[in-house]
Simulated assay, not measured.
Amino acid sequence: MYRIFIVEDDEKIAVILRGRMEQYGYEAAAASEFRELMPQLEAFTPHLVLLDINLPYFDGYYWCRQIRMRSSMPIIYISARAGEMDQVMAIENGGDDYITKPIQLELLMAKVRSALRRAYGEYAALPEKTGGGDADGLAGSGSAVRYGSSELSAHGLKLHLSRSELEWKGRKIELTKNEGLLAECLLRKPGHVIPRESLLEALWDDVQFVDDNTLTVNVTRLRKKLEELGLPKVIETMRGQGYKLSEDVLREGAAT
């Protein structure tokens, strides 16, 4: 049974969410104290977190970063903030998805099921145990990685699949789950345009519920990571088509 931890300071909403999760067969618990969330998380060992942004003491962005220091479990933001920058910040701070209030419960459940399938179920490469936590006390720690133990490379740019880590000229940088999936799609066909639809399907199996802007945000995050490695503009946007990994930029970078 998957465990869902709800971080929502509106008690009525928390009760509704907990009831809906249990209705669908999940074990659910809601945060009871918002000054210190991590002990509650560690005690419950969830597989997925539903996280509000406007919280007492520290906001949801802060807690998402704290969770990401220990775990790659799926985190879905639930917030009344509907602005584009709020969603960008949510993803930049480590979130996997975002849903606005008032909550459409069936849409939320579709996103929850999708995230759990990607992280632990039929779309995960490695089987996951759901009966207990990992060594650090969080069931999702490191468990959402989809990859095997190989690597992909193109003109010196390497993606270590088992670690979801990019390497360029000896420099390494860790990727989130979605960044790793995007990098994998692009590195499997360097120089070829990967359609937006293909990338959406690779990241989210319930594509009909995904805002196309979410893909753009994830690509932007991956571009920033590549820029930190010394590869600006290596991901090219092909208007009306998709994205491609520029072999010319890689060759030029390798030669310098």
Rank of each mutant, 00 (worst) to 15 (best):
L187V: 06
W168S: 04
T214R: 15
M89D: 06
T130K: 12
E165T: 12
A90G: 14
E151F: 14
V112P: 01
R163Y: 10
K225W: 01
K189E: 15
G170W: 00
E92D: 13
D212C: 03
I99A: 11
V207P: 00
Y123G: 01
M85S: 07
D97A: 10
D205F: 11
I91V: 05
I194Y: 02
M89T: 05
V219F: 03
Y120T: 08
R117H: 06
E167G: 01
K169Y: 00
G95C: 07
R223C: 15
T220G: 15
T220L: 14
R188E: 08
L107M: 13
E201N: 10
K177S: 12
G131K: 10
L203I: 09
A202Q: 07
L203G: 04
R196M: 08
V219G: 03
Q104K: 14
L126S: 11
I103F: 03
T100D: 08
D97G: 04
P102G: 09
A144W: 08
E197W: 03
D134M: 07
Y123S: 08
T100E: 13
K224V: 04
D136S: 05
R196E: 08
D96G: 07
R171I: 06
V210S: 02
V219L: 02
R171D: 00
D136Y: 01
R113T: 01
K224F: 09
E122S: 12
A183S: 11
R223T: 12
K101H: 09
K169D: 05
L116Y: 11
E201L: 07
Y98N: 06
R223Y: 08
G121S: 08
R171M: 03
R117Q: 15
G142K: 04
L107K: 15
E174R: 04
E128S: 14
S149R: 14
Y147C: 10
R146F: 10
R171L: 09
L138M: 06
A110Q: 06
K172M: 04
V219A: 00
E184S: 12
E128F: 04
A110K: 13
R163H: 11
M89S: 14
L175R: 02
G131P: 00
R196C: 12
I103W: 02
K158W: 05
P190D: 04
I91S: 01
L187E: 04
M109K: 01
D206L: 07
D212Q: 13
